[in-house]
């Protein structure tokens, strides 16, 4: 059974299949990106000229490294409906 957020009739339905990004949809869809929950961006995306930042608490303790702990960053992704 589909679960939706409280009174959130606006929430788009969860698709049965991953849908292809339409090639000629509205302008907004030019910026649609497909990602995997918890994925890390390719290191190549970081400019070499900038120093690599030190790890933070989120990264060290909760990001994809301890399945027991909830991952706040992922939680934010999943809870996007309320956070925009």
């Amino acid at each position: 059974m589909r679960i939706r957020a409280l009174e959130s009739s606006r929430r788009p339905p969860v698709p049965e299949e991953t849908f292809p990004i339409p090639a000629d949809g509205p302008f907004a869809l030019l910026f649609l990106r497909t990602r995997i929950i918890g994925e890390r961006l390719n290191e190549d995306e970081e400019p070499e000229s900038k120093p690599k930042p030190k790890p933070t608490a989120t990264e060290a303790t909760t990001t994809g490294k301890d399945e027991v702990n909830p991952n706040p960053a992922q939680n934010e992704e999943i809870d996007w409906e309320y956070d925009d």
């Binding site: 788009p12 698709p15 907004a28 918890g38």
Partner: peptide
Amino acid sequence: IFKPLHGGFFLGRGSSYHVIYTS
């Protein structure tokens, strides 16, 4: 920049999702 007026996050199957960030 372009940013969505509302949402911009669409769950896909499994652990994939589509998202529109401010761009």
